[in-house]
Design a protein around this nucleic acid. Structure first.
Lengths: 195, 195
DNA sequence: ACGGTAACTGTCCGAACGGTCAGGTCTGAC
DNA sequence: GTCAGACCTGACCGTTCGGACAGTTACCGT
């Protein structure tokens, strides 16, 4: 019912995302955001209990997807886990380019958000690495896994002037090469439904 | 002549690095650093003209090496440029693990430091990517190059419990695989002298 | 008409923080 | 002895910013 296009809440989120991405989280004050949408700072704090809450709400969608991926991966093993993880992670990265950049550029601030998931970011990262490494404990495999994930992450954060299809293709082949995996076969629908 | 082990300047730098890495640049106040070494904040500001200057001085060594690498690369082309860039970048990353983590976690703050190089960070990054891509303009090559560099960067920032030799080997093979380059041959002394 | 509630705002406040300044102490040179 | 300069400090200041609060307006059900 409510026209989402003029809902102040959504407009505040949009402005906050834009400003956070361009000036950083700490570099953006509540007054900046309020001024950007043309409302009062008090009004902003009516919609969000505090500054962190804005960041949390912005990052929640990505957090949820990564969390869901993490759960899905817990049941997989070996090459299947690796392929699923890579495909899905690429998908998430592409679907949330701006948020990924926000994350990438503000790791220090984001990493101590209390309510993003139940889990700490490091925990999620470690389990992702574990999956991408195909559950191998060998240093080479762990490093390769971290490199693949880091590469996707960093590349997603740098806003390259390529369309999603090109980028997806390049990211996938790059990551699979890093992991020394056969890029020929597609994983059995890494993200069922939408991806 | 001056005992470097008790020079206040050096001790301040050491404390600042430790605190910046663990709590972030913005998350560390001048008072924190001063308290950590047990001197007054005023004394801290006697040694460094302002807070940024501390960060700049901490990052200067890395900046210089990257800058030197950048210059060396400008004369190389194709596969030679790529191999040199990768080898040297891995070397730098390993030699400055803590600083790389500082950089990685505080990109938003670091990216607007005025006096690090003459150049903006984006400029250096772009030219590094250009070299690693072997001067190719094809999207695939650019993405692969960015992934390789990002992977090395991210992996260097995550302080893995591996020794330098293991890490170096793993980083190199990972990056070269990402770039689809033959890992067999070592580049003709990528960093002459020490590396 | 009226009470309640959601949306919104002006104003104020306290804390944190970066930075300044006047001055104090020590040492070494002349 | 004294002058200069490096080193260090307590006290202070201005600003910025996140957040609290007491309202006010507008809408809606009854």
């Amino acid at each position: 019912m409510a026209r989402t296009s003029s809902g102040l809440h959504e407009r505040l989120l949009a402005s906050a995302l834009r400003l956070f991405v361009s000036r950083g989280f700490r570099g953006t004050s509540l007054a900046d955001i309020a001024a950007d949408v043309g409302c009062s700072k008090a009004s902003l704090l009516y919609h969000f209990s505090n500054k962190e809450a804005i960041l949390t709400e912005l990052l929640m969608p990505v957090g949820n997807e990564v969390f869901a991926l993490d759960e899905r991966l817990s049941e997989l093993d070996g090459e299947e886990a690796a392929l699923t993880a890579v495909h899905s992670f690429v998908g998430i990265t592409l679907r949330f380019r701006r948020e990924i950049k926000l994350l990438f550029d503000n790791l220090a601030d984001v990493s101590c958000l209390p309510d993003l998931g139940v889990e700490t970011m490091d925990g999620i990262r470690d389990r992702l690495v574990d999956a991408v490494a195909g559950r191998s404990a060998a240093p080479r495999d762990r490093v390769a896994a971290l490199m693949a994930l880091g590469g996707i992450f960093a590349t997603g954060a740098a806003d390259l002037p390529y369309d999603d299809l090109t980028l997806r293709e390049a990211l996938l082949t790059g990551a699979l090469r890093t992991l020394n995996l056969d890029p020929g076969r597609t994983v059995r629908d890494a993200e069922p439904g939408k991806n």
